[in-house]
Design a protein around this nucleic acid. Sequence first.
RNA 1: GCGCCCGUAGCUCAACCGGAUAGAGCAUCGGCCUUCUAAGCCGAAUGUUGCAGGUUCGAGUCCUGCCGGGCGCGCCA
Length: 580
Amino acid sequence: MHLKNEIAKLLELTLSGMSDLSDAPEIASTHTTVERTRDPRHGDFTTNIAMRLAKSAGRNPREIAQAIIDALPQNELIDKVEIAGPGFINFHVSSIASHREVAGILASGQRYGRQETRATPKILLEFVSANPTGPLHVGHGRHASYGATLGNLLEAAGFKVDREYYVNDAGRQMDILGVSVLLRMLEAGGSTVRFPDAGYKGEYIREIAANITEDISNLDPLELFKGLPTDDKEEIISALIANAERLLGDDSFGKLRRQALESILSDIKDDLAEFGVVFDRWFSEQSLTDDKLIDDALAVLKKRQMLYEKDGATWFRATDFGDEKDRVVVRENGKKTYFASDIAYHYGKRERGYDHLIDILGSDHHGYIARVRAGLEAMGYAGDSLEVELVQFVTLYRAGEKLQMSTRSGEFVTLRQLREDVGNDAARFFYVMRSNDQHLDFDMELAKSRSNDNPVYYIQYAHARVASVFRQLEEKAFTYQQAEGISAFAMLTESHEKALMTSLSRYPEVIELAAVNRAPQHLVHYLRDVANELHSYYNAHQFIVEDDDLRNARLALIDATRIVIANGLGIIGVSAPEAM
RNA sequence: GCGCCCGUAGCUCAACCGGAUAGAGCAUCGGCCUUCUAAGCCGAAUGUUGCAGGUUCGAGUCCUGCCGGGCGCGCCA
């Protein structure tokens, strides 16, 4: 248990023993009212509980605060408790508490900041889920970084979490992909084709086409283009799909399509793996149909009388659950809508035993949330078991110039290009530096710069600096005795040392805060603070000193700092280099 | 037109169920390397939190209206 929770628990215990206050409804949420102070003059922790209780108790907040302070039992973690301002209760943490915490870092190492895993809720985190019709671009990179980091945060905070990628491998877009590849194959074979506007025009389609093994030699290109409509681009592509299926045969076109899909999917998997983003499961949309899960979900809805027929289609009563209109699940032509697979997919997630579902979606999908939630509710699951985190768009800047991107035309910067350009560390870091509900301006020059402008290097440098000190130690033939250092923590009385110890002890709280708020930027800002304090300390004091106790104590402190930085960077997916 | 998100320093952004004097980085200006990496440190300056009301002991945060920006409103996926 971290320091903040210990203080909160102490406070709760005290309040429950105060007969005149213990009935107040505010008591129930006491644990959340203890927070770190912003100003060190206010001590280390503060609570506003006295002010919150004032109304229902009908008493002056400062008077209540004094009563609480009087009732607080003696505790070695706390040096001093005082009332301030309108009724804040400020706690000054003892040096014993700080020393214990830093010793705990050294003892826990990589595990420091990780809470014990709790059995429930089991969380399913779905993210990226980009259509497998082309390589990932820089927008997906933000989803990947945010999702991976959030997954790490949740795990560190003690939650059981599985990561899943929903592969949209069914439906029309696969047919369009197949036709796009087919046309590029014909082109490569010397035919002249008029490439349709609705096709995937990216250069990568030619590369995929070059690697398709399916034999199309008996396909007559002229036949393929025969009888095409000329006006509507959607109709043109539909006719091309129909012609391709007819001329090649359903089987052959299917194989071509599958090869194209596998090619793109394996590229996406490699890309993400290289980016340090791993999934527990790649869930196929097609499998929902193959395994009859959509039928099952629709049967559940039907049984619950949530469906009705109108205009030849089957509708779901989404308005009964707060959506703005009812939604079609089976079209007039008998085909199920994308929405039908999506509610089946989310229903399946709950059926597979996950208590809480987190979807990370692009902000342009926000209109979709209400209907999926409605689907869950209609099938008997709580709507709030689905949580959606929206990620805003990314704008790339290179040398101050905004890079225009268009997915349709195939002209966009891929995630792979970005990674090669700025490096994985900078990319992972920059992507989670900002709150996910803010548009992100990604400055490629800054991400690349090996200078003090670059926050990634600033933090990594702090880690490398500590490593460097330990290398110097050997060269100078001094030793580092960790246990002696811990015993001598009382010698660390400099302001830099106290500040650093306080910051380090915040780490588990920051992990929890970032996890609960789904806000990795808290961790980023925290790590910058720790790095700053390390650098300041480094400049103000010598670590490798003659005095054995002082040297060991200082080295133990920076050793702990190195651990916290490495753990924090690890959660973001950024390396902690030994030397730079 | 309706719905969701956003609006904080010159720029890019933080700000933990509402809490104390709204904080960082960049850019600007001035200092610090014969001493563990100057990819660093120290200092200076920077605000009508889009506007107007309301709730509250207390509002950047909650409510209402307006202004500006993004996105969404399909028997597409």
